[in-house]
Design a protein around this nucleic acid. Structure first.
Length: 436
RNA sequence: GGAGAGGUGGCCGAGUGGCUUAAGGCGUCGGUUUGCUAAACCGAUGUAGUAUCGUAAGGUGCUACCGGGGGUUCGAAUCCCCCCUUCUCCGCCA
């Protein structure tokens, strides 16, 4: 959420941001907000004035009653004032709700280093690490062919028991997946200094609002409840399956006051991730490329505002370290203004190379949200006891998503015989060297 | 699923309708005293919104906030209703 003061004082900057993000339809919303803000402030002034009167006269009434006097006319007078206050407060609530509804849907301001661009085609290649790229002297198989032939991935049974987009990992495939997760976590904990979090996989709506999925992107999120609708309504429980561990982990410190000395706080955690992928049919549907459930190790940072961009570079490096240890070719993209996510002020994507697809696949997204999430989630800090509270900056990055990583791994490490050589760094975890 | 007890400022903790601008204590910061430390004493010490003054840092006024929401009342931390949550006990359960 961006600061209403920014919209009030420099609406043209907010409009320029929307233009850069190719969200021309939202331009008029800025003007709506300015008007609503003026209305709101006028109402607050009026209502506060009446409340001041009420407080004062109520004290007078107390004094009169103590002296056994008659305060009936003053009480009658205040009854009218109270009714007026109630009317103004009701009007105020309507306007505030309207304002918040717009504000929560507006994207974040962009960092100056974000390149202008209309679409994903305009993203900038920031870095390419292709030294691990293999030359194959045989026809490469793609990950679905390898997975089926080796009996380590079962798409059909996954579809039977759950539906398309829910693959089953079998035998050494399951072990390999678990090895990847453990390897990545250990690296972040031991080498990169993160603290491990194993979060809940279901969260409430407040958490989704904190990180920005609610209200604008709620259609991508699964909602859970009881099959018995009556029981569901009666329970009052509204839970959502997390689309990423970013949601529970960032919200750990929702409504908290952190100490500057404790910053940066760095968490890494594994979670299954659930995405409805509504409206994305026909795009990247093959095998692991787009799933309803996948596994991911996520990194989350809470930082001082002045260090957040340095921390972003380190975050990307932490994710890259995984790929370098696994010896998988990849590149880093700096996303342009037209492709960057709504909450991010700056974002790098890391893409792994798929020898079968002959293209890069997104395996990680590392973003600095600045105070966009912390303002929504009220995550603040004080520099010292006497300082005014400020919003922390939050960052997060996948480190990494195993689904896309598994595609690159299987395809990169396949042998002529159709087996998979386990990368050296994973062998202590799998306790086998070869799949097949 | 059942029974009970809680949720008050950074922390502990009092507070059953108006002398509560939330007692008292701890902590923190500033000061006095002191060879230094400690102690003692004095003072300060929340968040948010809004108006106004100031180039600004900030000052001043008003309003709201005692788990959340709603209600009663001229007036609510206090009374009523709903919800969330923590703890204890019983039952069930991986």
């Amino acid at each position: 959420m961006i600061d209403i003061k920014l919209i009030r004082e420099t609406p043209e900057k907010v409009k320029a941001m929307l233009e850069a993000r190719q969200q021309h339809a939202d331009l008029s919303r800025v003007d709506d907000l300015v008007l609503l803000d003026q209305k709101r402030r006028a109402l607050v002034a009026k209502a506060d004035d009446l409340k001041a009167t009420r407080n004062k006269v109520s004290d007078d009434i107390a004094t009169i009653k103590k002296q056994k006097g008659n305060a009936d006319d003053k009480i009658a007078e205040m009854k009218v004032v109270s009714d007026n206050i109630a009317a103004l407060d009701a009007e105020l609530r309507t306007i505030e709700a309207e304002q918040e509804n717009i504000l929560l849907r507006l994207p974040n301001m962009l960092h100056e280093s974000v390149p202008l661009g209309k679409s994903a085609d305009d993203n900038k290649v920031h870095k390419e690490v292709l030294s691990f790229k293999r030359e194959f002297d045989f026809t490469v198989k793609d990950h679905t062919q390898l997975g089926k032939a080796l009996g380590i991935l079962d798409f059909e049974r996954g579809a039977k028991i759950s539906g398309a987009g829910f693959p089953v990992y079998v035998g050494k495939g399951a072990s390999l997946e678990r090895a990847l997760i453990n390897f990545m976590l250990d690296m972040h904990l031991e080498k990169h200094g993160y603290k491990e979090i194993f979060p809940p996989f279901f969260v409430n709506q407040e958490s989704l609002r904190g990180t920005g999925q609610f209200p604008k992107f709620i259609n991508q999120v699964y909602k859970v409840g009881y099959e018995d609708e009556e029981k569901y309504e009666a329970s009052g429980v509204k839970l959502y399956a997390i689309p990423t561990a970013e949601v529970p982990i960032t919200n750990l410190h929702r409504d908290e006051m952190l100490k500057a000395a404790d910053l940066p706080i760095k968490y890494a955690g594994y979670s299954a991730c659930f995405r409805s992928e509504a409206g994305s049919y026909g795009k990247d549907v093959k095998g692991f490329l787009r799933l309803h459930q996948f596994n991911k190790v996520e990194m989350v940072k809470f930082t001082l505002p002045e260090t957040s961009y340095d921390e972003l570079e380190l975050l990307v490096q932490d994710a890259e370290d995984i790929l370098q240890a696994l010896k998988i070719p990849y590149r880093v993209l700096l996303l342009c203004s037209g492709d960057i996510g709504a909450g991010a002020a700056k974002c790098y994507d890391i893409e792994v190379w798929s020898p079968a697809e002959q293209r890069f696949l997104e395996a990680s997204s590392c973003s600095n949200f600045e105070d966009y999430q912390s303002r929504r989630a009220h995550i603040r800090f004080k520099r010292d006891e006497k300082s005014k509270p400020e919003f922390v900056h939050t960052l997060n990055g996948s480190g990494l998503a195993t689904s896309r990583l598994m595609v690159a791994l299987l395809e990169t490490y396949q042998t002529k015989e159709g087996k998979i050589a386990v990368p050296d760094v994973l062998r202590p975890y799998t306790r086998f060297d070869m799949v097949g």
